[in-house]
Write a protein that binds this DNA or RNA. Structure first.
Ligand SMILES: [Mn+2]
Ligand SMILES: [Mn+2]
Ligand SMILES: [Zn+2]
Ligand SMILES: [Zn+2]
Lengths: 145, 145
DNA sequence: AAATAAGTGAAAATGATTGTCAGTTCCATT
DNA sequence: AATGGAACTGACAATCATTTTCACTTATTT
């Protein structure tokens, strides 16, 4: 059994939440999936393997998985929440292509440090941040030109 | 007549869009208002002065004002769009208090420069960015402690 | 003035997300 | 093993911000 599943079970145990068959299957799907899928896409994957599981249950399970710290809900500003892996992943931000929707995960230690300083300057206790750079990716720049 | 209103009229003229009484009044309200108001709040202000103007018209007018480059729609991730002044304003990002909702407008030249470099590194043609720092503001830190 | 185009506002539609609730499953206690 | 309560499920309804529709009015052009 994977370490993440053990971690999840422990989280549920600590919070007196049951580890149901549905939650197990949805976690499996999430752990195997590509990054940044929407609920609709995750539900589609779930439905292929376990057609009896409902949409609402996927919603609830994903919210639980987020609360446990295994997934993170991300918002690219298009009204659709996407989920990405969080457990054991380092923090990163996103470069998003406005043309094809592709995105690149980026991390810049200098920016992160400057963000901390900026918060300090304004006497904010920093809890997190969101940074998204929008533009045209390398491939799309060629096409457009 | 203010320079912004002239600019708006010119934008509408260039795009063969009429300058209606409603659009005029909604622009007036927007130009006088505080920053970062939602549609519901803008509509409330509009309704006080011009009770005959409908909610839908406010929506449409604000979208136009955005397209003209006079307002900018901002998304703090809570499902509600807010609008801020853009004409003649310098770009800035936001520090947002998770406790009281207050926010501070910030700009950091070093971060902006590093963002440009980061995009360049990944061969992205940068069009814009969104950066929000979340935390607890100075006042709320006191209260919580 | 007539014809055409654009704008308005009330109401309905949309779409993502959350709440409800009757039926089911799980667990601890007898 | 039986039972009673708590948690869970899934279909459906509700919510809420935003967009679309459409009959009607207003402005512009011929
Ligand atoms: Mn990512
Ligand atoms: Mn601002
Ligand atoms: Zn692209
Ligand atoms: Zn605060």
């Amino acid at each position: 059994m994977g370490v993440i599943k053990e971690f999840y079970k422990q989280y549920l145990l600590n919070n007196k939440i049951r580890y149901s068959a549905q939650r197990d299957k949805i976690l499996d799907v999430f752990l195997k999936m590509e990054r940044h899928l929407s609920i609709a896409q995750i539900y589609e994957l779930v439905r292929n393997k376990y057609p009896q599981i409902g949409y609402t249950t996927v919603y609830r399970a994903m919210n639980l998985i987020c609360k446990a710290g295994i997934a993170e809900k991300i918002d690219f500003g298009d009204g659709i929440s996407r989920f990405e892996h969080k457990y054991g992943q380092e923090h990163h931000d996103h470069l998003i292509c406005l043309n094809c929707g592709k995105f690149i995960e980026v991390i810049d230690a200098q920016i992160e440090e400057l963000q901390r300083q900026l918060a300090k300057t304004h006497k904010f206790v920093l809890k997190g941040h969101k940074m998204q750079l929008f533009g045209t990716c390398c491939d799309c720049s060629k096409d457009i030109k």
